[in-house]
Design a protein around this nucleic acid. Structure first.
Length: 509
RNA sequence: GCGCCGCUAGCUCAACUGGUAGAGCAACUGACUCUUAAUCAGUAGGUUCGGGGUUCAAGUCCCUGGCGGCGUACCA
């Protein structure tokens, strides 16, 4: 077969050059397709401007009876996913976003030349328009008996193999191929979109205002994390990509917008794994005059709604485990949950006694691990994995929660809750600190941590303090990790499955 | 970050204790006018992730780098 010396014509020259970077075998696959284009290009427009279809595949299925009975001509478009030829006839599944419909071509109806174009010169992966009438084949497959067809776009690279699952890496790096090949993938991302739309509808119904706050910030804050750094050339200043929306949303509360929320990308310059991507989507909402119990009620309403709209009568199956979102969710105090697992109240325990508790469970003690940190580690080890059904963990030790208001009844605790489902944290909420004197003191603590070398400590935000000094009403705040929520609602065990374009290291040369 | 495992044709995967790299799909040629993982006959396709080493001989063993998966740490 001729390849090297074949002139593919003027249009594909760059494509041929690009293909030269590829392996010998792939180059030949591409060259073969370029040859077909060269032959077709004499007589056929391969990249027309538009195609007016009469129905998509779901509409064809929905109106099949009428269309078939009347013999109505239909126009349908999609990607050619396979070819099954029997000599002088050809069956091809054509796929659009809502599914596949088979097209049927006959040589004696189309003529030898046109039949050859579709039978020999059209490739799997090409986009095609099909005109004809609907019928069911002997074996019951919905089929368009084609009277004509149109090239909509020629593909020069092959699609992946059709009946084995693509690897996760390839699916993530070549999302267009994943979407083309896998209905589940298309469904998953459509569901993601639907969930986020439903969340917006929920907040609108609850009277919240959707707002947008800066991604590029002169100072970062609102969470403990290392930021990404960038530079504004004209101003010659360092800027940070936000790690949280919190401080800006609170300024809106201070300004008198009583209920605000934002669904936004946050960026954290930290490790990546099954549940972490450097950029991720976070929902934060704040409501004036509310405390964390109001936020707990709101969280229940939101998740109950999502479980009803996207699950099976308020239940979800995640990793083979059934999760029941009936109200109310279980509620347990942080120290009570810990006491139940350790057999003793650690509130009164000394630091040494807590350290002994860790050692008893052969959890390594690290240098600089304070009392709060030890409790947190104990909690993660002993309690979190048990929290499969939706459970609010509330009233955390103060030191773990520098942005939360002190507990109204119990000294040493704060008014905070986290919602755990399937063993991971889905939401985090506080009665927000609104006393500017205490906020200033906590920033001072953070500064001390930073000076001691903690690169996750939050910088002092003088603008934010000034805002709070203008008077901040009592406020409840809530954060929900949207990507993890989508994982839960799509039964996905890797965050890459719910991000269209997850961060990947560049491929090696 | 660290630990373990993996990387072989465009895709999904084989190749025993080191001994001439294979299959299915995709591609190409031919047959076939209701096929559907179409079928049948044939053909072609490889820097075995990169670099170095051991050996008569390396996909296989060793070292090193890259990318990925899982676990772990931190977090959402």
């Amino acid at each position: 077969m001729a390849t090297e010396d074949h002139d593919p014509g003027p249009a594909p020259a760059d494509a041929a050059a690009a293909a030269a970077q590829e392996s010998e075998n792939l180059r030949k696959l591409i060259a073969g397709r370029l040859e077909k284009m060269a032959e077709l290009g004499q007589r056929t427009e391969l990249y027309p401007y538009a195609y007016r279809r009469t129905h998509d595949s779901s509409q064809l299925r929905a109106h099949e009876q009428d269309l078939t009975a009347a013999g109505t001509p239909v126009r349908f478009a999609g990607r050619l996913m396979a070819k099954r030829g029997t000599g002088k006839t050809l069956f091809v599944p054509v796929q659009d976003e809502s599914g596949r419909v088979q097209a049927y071509f006959k040589q004696d109806e189309l003529g030898e030349e046109r039949f050859r174009q579709v039978n020999k010169l059209m490739d799997i992966g090409d986009w095609i328009g099909v005109e004809g009438t609907l019928f069911r084949t002997r074996t019951g497959e919905l089929t368009i008996h084609a009277t004509d067809f149109t090239f909509l776009a020629k593909a020069i690279r092959p699609l992946p193999e059709k009946y084995h699952e693509m690897g996760l890496e390839l699916k993530s790096r070549r999302r267009h191929l994943d979407l083309a090949m896998n209905q589940e993938s298309r469904d998953r991302f459509r569901r993601r979109s639907a969930v986020i739309a439903d969340i917006r509808a929920f907040f609108a119904a609850e009277g919240f205002l959707e707002v947008e706050t800066p991604v590029l910030q002169p100072l970062y804050g609102g969470a403990t994390a290392r930021p990404f750094t960038t530079r504004h050339n004209a101003l010659d200043t360092t800027l940070y990509l936000r790690i949280a929306d919190e401080l800006y949303l609170k300024r809106l509360i201070i300004g008198g917008l009583e209920k605000v929320y934002e669904i936004a990308k946050d960026f954290r310059n930290e490790g990546m794994d099954r549940t972490h991507n450097p950029e991720f989507t976070m929902l934060e909402c704040y409501a004036a005059y509310w405390d964390y119990t109001d936020m707990m009620d709101l969280t229940e309403r939101l998740l109950r709604r999502l479980a009803l709209n996207f699950g099976d009568e308020g239940r979800l199956t995640y990793g083979g485990v059934e999760l029941d979102f009936s109200l109310p969710f279980a509620r347990v105090r942080f120290m009570d949950a810990l006491a139940e697992r350790t057999g003793g109240d650690l509130m009164a325990a000394t630091d040494d006694e807590i350290a002994a508790e860790l050692q008893r469970r052969s959890i390594p003690l690290k240098k600089g691990m304070g009392r709060d940190k030890m409790l947190d580690v104990l909690f993660s080890e002993l309690v979190e994995p048990q929290l499969v059904q939706p459970t609010f963990v509330m009233d955390h030790p103060k030191e773990l929660s520098p942005l939360a208001k002190g507990h109204r009844a119990t000294p040493g605790l704060v008014e905070r809750f986290e919602l755990f489902v399937a063993g991971f944290e889905l939401a985090n909420s506080f009665s927000e600190l609104n006393d500017p004197r205490e906020q200033r003191a906590r920033f001072a603590d953070q500064r001390a941590l930073a000076e001691a070398g903690d690169d996750e400590a939050q910088p002092v935000d003088e603008d934010f303090l000034q805002a709070m000094e203008a008077g901040m009403p009592p406020t409840g705040g809530l954060g929900v990790g949207i990507d993890r929520l989508i994982m839960l609602l799509t039964d996905s065990n890797n965050i890459r499955d719910v991000l269209l374009f997850p961060h990947m290291r560049p491929e090696a040369d």
